[in-house]
Amino acid sequence: MRARTTVELVALVQRISGLHQQGATHESAAIVRQVAVMITPEDVARLAAMLQQNGPAGSSTYLARSASTGAPEHAAATLAVLRRDGMINEAADLFHTLWSASSAALPALLAALEQSGQSADGQTLLWERASAPAEELAELAQHLKAAGRTADVRHLLRQAAGRPINEVAAIVGALSEETAAELIGELARIRSASDISRFGAAIQGSSELYDTLLFAADDLEESRARSVFTALRTGGLPTELTPRPRSRSRQRR
């Protein structure tokens, strides 16, 4: 990807503006979308500045948003350059567009933001996804694990563990067994004993999940574990593992 000369960028502005003035707005927008991923991040910022001054209204922010359709590295680098060059509105539009990245694309985008010195923005995106519906959150956790981003999985689950109990129960049901156990562990560490009891009631229909909750509670510091088991008994819930023909090898303390 080579850098464009000022003459080339001016020609682009003239072409985009000319089509817009002729009423060919779709053609004009198509050129902006195409150019956004074909030129360097530095040239995106230069072209955005020219469009801001001379192009159709809104074309500079549209150019910035369109950079999100390119490779994650290109989008992240463009975001960094727009901010560096003081293109505040354009950078904000691009960042907000990145919020809609698919679960499959998000791990690569998080890595690209880190590489461009924008790790905090990646954590903001992850925080935003923690409020997603159960199936979507489960899908994201799976993609993050596959990409080896275990710290991001923990961050995502920690945020999800703070959601309303019925939502946490739905999320646990959508996760893989291993990831569900991680979320239950987070919930056991951060929620009140009464919240954990309500969660236990919500998942009691699944003996596997309920036993995982008992193990998580048993792993807590002694006084906190005692409070949780007391809350479970008060709520009429069992505090012993579900009997099985083949019991789990792990023993509660």
Rank of each mutant, 00 (worst) to 15 (best):
E139S: 15
I184K: 09
A161L: 07
M87N: 07
L175M: 08
Q115V: 00
E167V: 06
G162T: 10
E177N: 01
A180G: 13
R149W: 06
L94E: 11
T78Y: 14
Q115C: 02
G162L: 11
S119M: 04
L137D: 13
A151I: 07
I165S: 01
R84V: 04
Q159Y: 11
A91K: 03
W99K: 13
A169V: 03
T179C: 00
A101H: 01
A92I: 08
A92Q: 12
P164G: 03
E139F: 07
L157Q: 10
A181H: 05
F95V: 00
R154N: 14
L156W: 12
G162C: 10
F95W: 06
F95Y: 12
G162K: 07
A104T: 00
R154T: 12
D152P: 03
E178P: 02
R84C: 05
A160S: 11
Q118D: 03
A170C: 04
W127Y: 09
M87V: 03
A134R: 01
R158S: 15
T97I: 02
I165E: 03
A132Y: 12
S116Y: 02
A141H: 00
S103Y: 02
L183Y: 09
A76P: 15
A170S: 14
T78I: 04
Q115G: 03
A181L: 02
L156F: 12
L82H: 11
V81Q: 08
R129K: 14
L113G: 09
Q118V: 05
I184T: 06
R149P: 00
E182K: 03
T150P: 00
D121H: 14
G86R: 12
L82V: 09
M87H: 13
L113F: 08
Q115T: 03
R83L: 13
A151E: 13
L106D: 05
L144V: 14
H96W: 04
Q142C: 05
A111Y: 03
P164M: 06
A132W: 15
M87I: 04
S119F: 07
F95H: 08
N89F: 08
L144Y: 13
L157C: 06
A134T: 03
G122L: 02
A132Q: 08
L106N: 04
L137I: 07
Q115H: 05
A111P: 02
I88E: 14
R163T: 00
V153E: 04
L175H: 03
P133M: 08
S100Y: 13
D93V: 09
V168E: 15
A132R: 02
P133R: 01
A76G: 09
E139N: 09
A92F: 06
P107I: 06
P107H: 05
T179S: 01
I184C: 01
S176Q: 04
T150K: 13
A112E: 10
A147L: 08
L125R: 08
L109Y: 12
A120N: 05
Q159A: 14
E128A: 12
A146Q: 14
A108L: 15
R129M: 09
I184L: 13
